Structures are given as C-alpha cells and as structure tokens.
Computed example of a mutant assay.
Amino acid sequence: MSGMDELARRYLASWNETDPVRRRALVAELWTLDARYVDPIVVAEGHAGIDEAMATAQRRFPGLRYRAAGPVDAHHDVARLTWELGPDGGPAVIIGSTVLVAGQSRLSRGYGFLDPVPTTGADK
C-alpha cells in the first residue's frame, strides 16, 4: 500500500469515527496544523474545523458510512479518492470524490466534490 493509499484509508476512517475523542485524535494524526478542507457545503480550517465538519456530517447523515468506491489514484503527494456514503451493505446516498494533498506525510488540503450535493437538512 502506498503512502497516499494509507492516507486515503485513514481519511475515510476519520469521517466514520463517531467517538469525538478518538475522531479528534485521528484528525490530529492525519492532518497538518494548517490543514484546510473544502467541499460545496463546508469550508473547514485547522484540526478543530475539520473535526467539526466530520461531526456535522455524522449528525446530518446518522447511520451512514463512508467507503471507498474504487482504487486511490495517486501521484507525487496528491491523490484522488472516489467514495460513497451509505448504510452498511446498502446503496450509496451520495457519491463523491476528494482530492487530497499531502505535506510532511500528513494531509494538508482536501477538496471534496459531491454527487448529488445534499440540499435538505443543511441546518442540522
């Protein structure tokens, strides 16, 4: 498994971690201090911002899990990850892709794309 494959695996695991203490630890281990994650519905900066984006997604989509939807496509310190969000063993509710950029063997940037972009429950 390449370094970017491992970072992508840990990235998905952190989005699925429901224990707040453990999730914060995963974020701190995975992301650089100046990390930034953006997608069509969130801009998150630093460990606290990224952790809050993950917690918000879990509140918004309870019981759903992120899973890889194909191999990680990587070169240099950049990876493209296609993923799905859905119930265990069930169909995907959202399919997305994220471009991950690494620095110092940790993620420094994440750019997410969603299909479809959720339009309901944005205030939850």
Rank of each mutant, 00 (worst) to 15 (best):
M1E: 11
M1I: 10
G3E: 13
M4Y: 08
D5N: 11
D5S: 13
L7W: 03
L7Y: 04
L7S: 03
A8P: 04
A8G: 02
A8H: 03
Y11T: 04
Y11G: 05
Y11Q: 05
W15D: 13
N16E: 05
N16G: 07
N16Y: 06
E17V: 12
E17D: 15
D19Q: 01
D19F: 10
V21P: 00
R22N: 07
R22K: 06
R23F: 01
R24V: 06
R24K: 11
A25R: 07
A25E: 08
L26S: 07
V27T: 13
A28D: 14
L30G: 09
D34P: 12
A35F: 07
A35I: 08
R36G: 11
D39W: 04
P40S: 11
P40R: 07
I41E: 03
V42K: 00
V42E: 05
V43Q: 02
A44N: 05
E45A: 10
H47L: 14
A48R: 09
G49T: 11
I50M: 11
I50P: 02
I50H: 02
E52P: 12
A53H: 04
A55P: 07
A55W: 02
A55K: 05
A57K: 09
A57C: 11
Q58T: 14
R60D: 12
R60Y: 09
R60Q: 15
R60N: 14
F61W: 09
L64M: 15
Y66T: 14
Y66V: 15
Y66P: 05
Y66Q: 13
A68F: 05
A68E: 03
G70Q: 00
P71K: 06
V72E: 01
V72I: 04
V72T: 05
D73R: 09
D73C: 03
A74I: 04
V78Y: 01
V78N: 02
V78K: 05
L81Q: 03
L81K: 01
L81H: 01
L81Y: 01
T82Y: 02
T82Q: 07
W83R: 06
W83Y: 07
W83I: 14
G86H: 10
G86N: 12
P87C: 15
P87Q: 15
P87A: 15
G89T: 13
G89W: 07
G90K: 10
V93T: 12
I94W: 02
I94K: 04
I95G: 07
I95Q: 06
S97I: 04
V99E: 03
L100G: 04
V101Y: 00
A102K: 00
A102G: 10
Q104G: 13
Q104F: 00
L107F: 08
S108D: 11
S108T: 14
R109F: 00
R109G: 03
R109H: 04
R109Y: 01
G110M: 06
G110C: 10
G110Y: 02
G110W: 01
Y111F: 05
F113R: 06
F113Y: 12
L114A: 06
L114D: 09
L114E: 06
V117D: 03
V117R: 04
P118W: 01
P118F: 01
T119A: 11
T120D: 09
T120Q: 11
A122L: 12
K124E: 15
